[in-house]
Design a protein around this nucleic acid. Sequence first.
RNA 1: AGGCGCGUAGCUCAGUGGGAGAGCGCUACCUUGACACGGUAGAGGUCAGGGGUUCGAUACCCCUCGUGCCUACCA
Length: 896
Amino acid sequence: MIELKKSYSPEDIEDKWYSIWENNGYFKPDLNAAKSPFCIVIPPPNVTGSLHMGHALNVTIQDIISRWKRMSGHKVLWLPGTDHAGIATQNVVEREISKEGIDRHKLGREAFIEKIWTWKAEYGSRIIHQLKKLGASCDWSRERFTLDEGLSKAVREVFVRLFEERLVYRDSRLINWCPRCHTALSDIEVEYEEIEGKLYYIKYPLTSNSEVQTQDFIVVATTRPETMLGDMAVAVHPEDERYKNFIGKNLDLPLTGRKIPVIADLSVDLAFGTGAVKVTPAHDFNDEAIGKRHELEAISVIAKDGSMSAEAGQRYKGLDRYQCRKKVIEDLNELGLLQGDKKHLHSVGHCYRCKTIIEPMQTIQWYVKIESLAKEAIKAVEDKKIRLIPEQWENNFFAWMKDIKDWCISRQIWWGHQIPVWYCLECKGEDGMPLKISQRQDPTECPECGSKNIIRDPDVLDTWFSSALWPFSTLGWPDDTEDLKTFYPTSVLVTGFDILFFWVARMIMMGLKFMNDVPFRDVYIHALVRDSKGHKMSKSKGNVIDPLVMIEKYGADAFRFTLAAFAAQGRDVRFSEDRVEGYRHFINKLWNAAKYIINIQHPDVASFSELSEPPKPSTLPEKWILNRLAITVEEVNRNLTNYRFNDAANNIYQFVWHEFCDWYIELTKPVIYQGSDNEKNEVIKCLFFILEKTIRLLHPFMPYVTEELWNTVFKNSESIMVSPYPEGLPKYSDADAEMNYVINAVAGIRSIRGELNISPSLEIKADIRTLSNEVEKILKDSLPAIIKLTRCKEINIGADVKRAKGSAVSVKEKMEIYIPIEGLLDIKSEIDRLQKEKTKIDDAIAVLNKKLSNEDFLKNAPDAIVQKEKAKFDNLIHRIGKIEENIKLLKQVNSE
RNA sequence: AGGCGCGUAGCUCAGUGGGAGAGCGCUACCUUGACACGGUAGAGGUCAGGGGUUCGAUACCCCUCGUGCCUACCA
């Protein structure tokens, strides 16, 4: 005897099924199977990470696709792994050890890296456990980490080849520097944030031996007064009448004793500030460009830790850049050279890892020459070798790729792939710098001069360098592995738009360069998960919803289904917990439908669970529900193909609840409880068939509950995971329209009962005048069901049915429904009752009216409460109208 | 400043050249042999506003307002 608990409780079964799936190897593709390959590589979460809503959405979508494709007959590889996340991880561990009063420099490079590995061993698998909680069907036997031996080999190979082809180079220029992380950052690792600063107006006096009057000066406007210590010129627009006479003259740079020239440059905006710009080539990107045009020197007055350098002068040296700003202002003020300041809104670059304000800094770094790589990537997208979904992202992609700058790939940190370059200290390369050596094996001597006096570059590669190789490095490249042959190019990449440039664009470039083929065919770009107000979730804002809490409260299935239902293309997700609760109810609904079905008493009921052929019914409800199922199956498959997960989820929801449960199951009850064994046979077959198909259809969305039902109700294969996905079911196209008449008849009778408040326990008579023979036949065939659903004792159907005196009417398509209410209701006392109710409602309206015209209430009550009260008010108004109508109807019936 | 979105029920959101929808919330009734995590009947919307195209616009085009994001600039 099969049994199901009264309601579904996820906590009992989720972990159980997950380990059964994993232990039975259902997540592993069979490479020898004669099936077409399908592959997704996971966007590797940071090892430091813990599951957030973004991951949850991302992973749910990938799992839906993977399970769907697996059931649809592909050999599916969903390859998981984690990213070493250079700066982020180093920061986390640095914070950890600082609690013990240690810093990494005291510890030394090797010992520090050792610490990180220890930390990774302990905490790095947390995120993996959390992915499993969601039900992710990844092949864990192929799990990768970006610092694995194999992936490191790929990184080495790629770097050396780029080096050999001169696509990487070393150069000294201004870069974004994080003084806290103590490393260079690439352009996109800088986040700009609008902050309110001050614009200071500073007087730069003309040098006294000039022919112009000595009291003359130029006023410059700056937000960063401390950088004036490194000023090399003041630039004005060549056409600016105010300054024309100054061009070529010298100014005394206050606080320094240096003299700097006034130069003319077209980049100066006449309208901004004073029209005169102080030029600090060492600490500003625009100024660097001006400096280059005018062959100015660059003096770095800020050191790499954000303090002032010796070049800033004895008075300022060692001060923090912001302390120095204060001091410079004070000093200028004392000298009478500060004209004033005003508030100024401007956006300032911050480190994307630690949020420290970045400092443009002159350093030597490694770069990837990107232009040729970008060209190929653009072409691949233009030629539709890669599809971006939704397509609108192509615009952003092209815009970014066409304007892309060389990629700074060296980082002055310790955690990551150390750059495989050695410098010979004995001989020089073409550029006059120490000779650079980059080989697949660590060199022991200089290949040019044979000197053993070589040292390795201490820097590591940008963490995104190894991520860029992920689609092929994880499959075994540079070795020619079976996995690589089978699964590259991968099928689809599922990712958020926030890493489109960090990651996706670079994978495309590297894939095309080193595999001569795109890394994936489709890129499905999903939305960001935001809070209910539309803000990004972040710890500092305190608006984070923890996916694990959702799973614990509602179960993974309900949570996953919610994410799927929210995942409309091209729109951000504003997460609301109410929806999760709603979908948990949906699961319970499904659970109870299953309970209804297996509780049916019938001698052969067990045999129906092994049904594989679709039933061939002759009765309308069965034809109708099979037709609805066939159409739902078709739509779900189509929507999944088009990455329309929300539509697919809604298709199933609608079918299960509002068609299968609301109508079909109700329609089966007369047969199940009163029908003959033969009639019952047909219906039971159909019930089992629908249930079986439905849970398979739902499995990619709700893996756990469907597996549980599959194993409880059906025993025909080991797991629902390896059963085929429904498709191509037979349709009964006429059934829809025919069933509609039955539904209308039922709805019409119910409507009258509801409106007139006829007790549900009262069995009534109804008459239906049909306006076509077809409708008459259909309704007569379904009579027992209609009677049962409307709790009638008798229904007359026919073309010649007349409206009896004193009956209420409901008009539907091709039929008129009459219910004689004389005798059902004691009309006089019903009118009395309604009058009394009317008085009650009148009072309630008066009270609410008073409340809603109370200004204190409107001012002080929360909006939601006010809205609710207003809604109540409207509702009461409407009800009073209805009651008046009904009183009128009853009076009329009474007089007939 | 430029680009890309969004503005539909009280809230969170789907949707479409012809019928305005879902979940939650709200009102009334109902413990009807799957389910109160339920059922039935209801209320609630100038589909932001204004123009245009069309026989017909919530949907397509233009403008305005509001709002979000991205890129650039910000001395």
